[in-house]
Design a protein around this nucleic acid. Structure first.
Ligand SMILES: [Zn+2]
Ligand SMILES: [Zn+2]
Ligand SMILES: [Zn+2]
Ligand SMILES: [Zn+2]
Lengths: 159, 159
DNA sequence: GTTTCGATGAAAAAAGTTATCATAACTACT
DNA sequence: AGTAGTTATGATAACTTTTTTCATCGAAAC
């Protein structure tokens, strides 16, 4: 269980097991495929009637990421997010819609192979990776097509 | 030439060709494989005795990214950086050292294939991607090994 | 229970980015 | 060239996110 990993890592480094650290980790464990930023975690804690200082939220997220329990991700909107790292150590990957911001996840063995190859070629000890594909989701693409049609019709009726 | 692309895009949208816009683009064109953030561009401009307002630097970087002339990249250190988009439309990829922050670039056809596959599977129109591998560079790894040795020696001599 | 030292909370400070608005300057049209 | 019209810029304030500071609290060891 992930909570045990946290406790083990903390003991190993002479750091303390606290209510705040366990609670923040639980937030991630309770929600599947969550991508939370510090502010969001802070709000979720308030909803649970747990008043934890923002400074502690930031500190804990950094700590959990340092332990490899969370992975840091940035979608390009200026907010740093975190998600639970998977048990098997496999990074999971994101497909992001440029228009509506919707995020879909996918996995690929090819990336793990690529990681091995690049590691050998460069001498880097690669620990994890982050892959983001940017594009337009099917829904947004349909909307764009419809708008183009409307504009065409509008310009024709002006003539 | 990339400057012509800028001029063409500006005209197309009824926007103006200005000294500042061209100068900021030239900064990127003059340096190979550069990953510049707004603050860095501002400093480089000052060194060239060009006092351009920070607001304009931010606005211009966003504009050039919007035109597809620059690509936005984030290495996870809290700074938004930009780099010249390649002519062939191929995204290039980054291998980042967690310790010293050194960045190495690499290319891979496998990623283009993967992009095609995921595009078909999900229905997304994927336009570009961003791949970051995080790890420890050979130099930093050597240093870690040395420190471990020293600590071992120190703890032995204490006994 | 007491001691010790790391963790927390609250607030200030720092860092990065965006918004505001008066002034400058690019572009099109005489 | 000169002028009008409108966009871009510069300086600064405002805003957002993150880090630092420091007094106080509390986990862990004895
Ligand atoms: Zn995810
Ligand atoms: Zn969409
Ligand atoms: Zn690059
Ligand atoms: Zn390094």
């Amino acid at each position: 269980m992930t909570l045990d990993i946290l406790r083990r890592e903390l003991k190993k480094r002479g750091q303390r097991i606290t209510y705040q650290r366990e609670l923040i980790l639980k937030i991630f464990m309770e929600s599947e495929n969550a991508h939370f930023g510090a502010e969001e975690i802070y709000r979720l804690l308030l909803e649970k009637r747990s008043r934890i200082s923002k400074a502690t939220v930031y500190r804990t997220l950094a700590l959990l990421a340092d332990f490899g329990i969370l992975n840091k991700i940035e979608f390009g909107d200026g907010i740093v997010r975190y998600e639970l790292a998977s048990f098997d150590g496999k990074s999971h990957n994101h497909l992001i819609c440029k228009i509506c911001g919707k995020v879909v996840e996918f996995e690929s063995d090819k990336l793990d192979e690529l990681m091995e190859t690049i590691s050998k070629e460069t001498g880097y000890r690669i620990e994890n990776y982050q892959v983001k594909f940017y594009g337009i989701c099917p829904d947004c693409f349909k909307k764009i097509l419809r708008n183009d049609d409307n504009q065409k019709i509008a310009s024709e009726s002006v003539k």
